[in-house]
């Protein structure tokens, strides 16, 4: 099964709501008019596209008056173009080569966004690619967070560095990096505690981890990936902004895109912040992590069977 088909399958719900919705709008040979456009705007809004929905529809309406957009096919084509335009070019997204040795990846995000699960999936992925992976349990705040990571690490057969609950997360990060240096690991994945982007002290803690890593090894952390809950609405944009301000996020992972959520916020995040989406999480099991491909994503969202 190709990437496109896999995505399409996993994103069924997203697709059916938006794509079938568009089909529904035009069913029975309805002509394109203001009412239809208003309904289309509503449909786009429910995909968490936010104000982009209004922009798109205003643009469509303008071009409709000029006679450029006539029916369903035109609308689809136009939507596809606009949505794609909002995402970075294909070569900027998706998986990248991690060639520093070791490459340190700091994974951050708000509570419950799916950091630990995403790390598990990443570890599994890199491990299957033949890399030596070490995970560091820097979430020393939430009860049993390290236990959760350890169970995942065991399942993917990768090593873990952990300390007691309440330990300084920066110390865990330091130790993980040191261990990786000494034992020759390729990739260090650091799981951090969930924190709301509005909590200054917790964001400062994150900065400290970042600083400590940089002191220990020049260039570290090489990547800072922000995990966004795909079901989050417009707030995801704010999260991305504030996390970026604190620790220079270099990429985004969108988790939980297997529900009915649209991940519409992805468009705003990449557009407003210029952050590339690296992976999307599309299910509970370890292998359900796809490198992000903008075209495939938009096509999956708009596909008809």
């Amino acid at each position: 099964m190709g990437l496109f088909d896999r995505l399409k399958n996993r994103l069924t719900r997203t697709r059916s709501a938006l794509s079938d919705g568009i089909a529904g709008l035009f069913s029975g040979g309805r002509a394109m008019d203001d009412t239809l456009l208003a309904e289309l705007e509503e449909l786009l809004y429910t995909s968490d596209l936010g104000l982009l929905a209004t922009e798109i529809v205003e643009d469509l309406s303008r071009r409709h008056r000029r006679g450029e957009v006539r029916g369903e096919d035109d609308v689809r084509a136009s939507l596809r173009a606009t949505l794609l335009d909002r995402l970075p070019a294909k070569e900027e997204c998706g998986e990248i080569t991690l060639d520093a040795s070791p490459t340190v990846i700091l994974v951050v995000g708000v509570n419950g966004s799916g950091k630990t699960t995403s790390i598990a999936k990443l570890a599994h992925r890199f491990h299957t690619q033949g890399r030596q992976v070490l995970v560091g349990a820097c979430d020393t705040f939430r009860a049993a967070a390290a236990d959760q990571l350890e169970i995942w690490a065991d399942r993917s057969d990768v090593q873990i560095v952990r300390k007691d609950e309440g330990a300084d997360p920066a110390a865990v990060a330091f130790e993980a990096l040191e261990t990786a240096d000494v034992l020759g690991y390729d990739i260090v994945l650091l799981d951090t505690a969930g924190r709301l982007h509005t909590q200054k002290n917790l964001m400062d803690e994150l900065k400290k981890i970042h600083r400590v890593l940089g002191k220990k090894k020049e260039g570290a952390p090489h990547e800072v990936w922000l995990v966004i809950d795909g079901t989050n609405g417009q707030n995801a944009i704010q999260q991305a902004k504030l996390f970026t301000a604190a620790v220079e996020v270099t990429g985004v992972i969108v988790a939980k895109l297997d529900g009915t959520a649209k991940g519409g916020a992805v468009f705003a995040i990449t557009h407003e912040l210029g952050l590339p989406v690296r992976y999307i999480g599309t299910g509970e099991s370890l292998e359900l992590l796809e490198p992000f491909d903008p075209e495939a994503f938009v096509d999956a969202v708009l596909a008809t069977d």
């Binding site: 995909s47 999260q239 009915t260």
Partner: peptide, 12 residues
């Protein structure tokens, strides 16, 4: 329910 959920909050 996560207060940050988007439009999907309703559906779920």
């Amino acid at each position: 329910v996560d207060a940050m959920t988007g439009q999907d909050a309703i559906r779920s």
